[in-house]
Amino acid sequence: MNTSRPAIGAVVLTMNNRPGEFPVAMSSLLAQEGVDLDVVVVGNGCEPELVPDGVKTVALPVNVGIPEGRNIGAAGVGGDLIFFFDDDAVLPSPGVLRRLADQFALDSRRAFVQPRIADPRTGRTLRRWVPRLRASDPARAGTVTVMAEGVVMVRREAFEAVGGWPGHFFLFHEGVDLAWRLWDRGFTGHYAGDVVVNHPATDPARHAAFYRLNARNRVWLALRNLPAPLVPVNLAVWALVTLWRFRDPAVLRTSLAGFVEGVKGGYGTRAPMSWSTAARLTRAGRPPFC
């Protein structure tokens, strides 16, 4: 076991809308042992409140979205590893960050490590929190090709090499974009199923713009990252899944509007992954068209 103290920069975003959860999250973060921790709280469109003494803050005058807010936070902390932490999550024991950090020492190619996320009341791990197609056993560890963005640790060198989160996504699918770009640089991801972090089982559709941004960003994801022949395959699979999951005409109309918005542009620089990366992702268990 590595006996040195990993240097970790922790980034927490807040909108001052969780006065009960935020102090608990921060207390659990600052209680971590065996690591050198540098923490920043980014107020996304606000001046952060209820911030513990000694913690750095950044106040953004407008809400720039989650991925860009995290990029700004990452630039404001030190550490060879960066831990992105939702302001309503809780680290249930003081050794969580050290256990996650130790995973990087096992493989120099690991760019990100995600713990198992579980609802604090039920202990349940939602399907969307398990970063692989086969999710029947959420405690099973292994190599993964995507991540749950709200609670994840990333190797800084790799994060900076690919330019960080896609800030213009604002919300949704930024973790897939980052993971694909990391894999295209020769890195991998790891799911630490035996390391648990608590997070309430909230519904992403609670966001008013969920269906539009979900559809738009799926298009952007494909157009930014996939070889041209895989783009229509990826989008066709997404469209079929959307039709199967959602039967509400209003939801389908909003999703279609987001799809059209994505096709019109705004996705940023196109940098398609290599075919060898697509093959590596497929061998790892998740082809980049599903």
Rank of each mutant, 00 (worst) to 15 (best):
S255H: 14
V39W: 13
V195C: 04
R132S: 03
E21S: 09
E68A: 12
V260C: 06
L240C: 06
L240W: 13
L29T: 00
V12P: 13
M15K: 14
P232L: 11
D86V: 10
P120F: 14
R127V: 09
A257N: 07
A205H: 14
T242V: 12
L235Q: 09
A236Y: 07
N17S: 15
L281N: 01
G142P: 10
V196G: 00
S255P: 02
F210M: 02
P92M: 11
R110W: 12
D248I: 04
V154N: 08
D53M: 12
T145K: 06
V64P: 09
A105P: 00
V263F: 09
A139I: 04
V41L: 10
V144W: 06
L91S: 00
G266I: 02
R185M: 10
F210E: 01
R99G: 04
T202I: 14
L29Q: 01
A139N: 03
R286M: 10
V11E: 01
F289W: 15
A208P: 00
V152H: 07
V90H: 11
R156E: 08
R18H: 13
R155D: 15
V176M: 15
G95Y: 09
W183I: 01
A158C: 13
L240M: 12
K264V: 07
L226W: 04
G69K: 00
F187Y: 15
P229L: 07
E47K: 12
V96Y: 11
N17T: 14
M26S: 03
V24R: 15
G9P: 04
G175R: 09
F84G: 00
G34I: 01
H168I: 02
L171F: 13
N198M: 14
L30N: 09
V241Y: 05
I82F: 09
A228V: 11
V51R: 06
A271H: 07
L223A: 04
Q103N: 07
W244S: 11
T3N: 02
F246N: 08
P19L: 10
V233Q: 05
V24G: 03
P6W: 03
G163Y: 10
M273R: 05
R206K: 12
V195S: 04
F22N: 00
A135S: 14
V55N: 07
A278I: 02
P227T: 03
G150S: 14
T122Y: 09
L235Y: 08
F289V: 14
V196Y: 04
F84Q: 06
P287E: 07
R280C: 10
D53R: 15
M26C: 08
F22A: 02
G285P: 05
D137E: 13
L126E: 13
P6R: 05
L13I: 09
F169V: 00
P166N: 11
E47T: 15
I66L: 15
G268A: 03
A161F: 09
V241L: 12
A284N: 06
P288L: 02
A236P: 00
P229K: 06
V162C: 05
N214L: 12
R283N: 06
L235C: 07
A135M: 12
A201C: 07
R253N: 00
M147W: 04
A161R: 15
P229H: 08
A111C: 11
E68Y: 04
F259N: 01
P200E: 15
L221G: 00
L133V: 08
G164D: 04
F83S: 02
R181K: 13
T282P: 04
M147E: 09
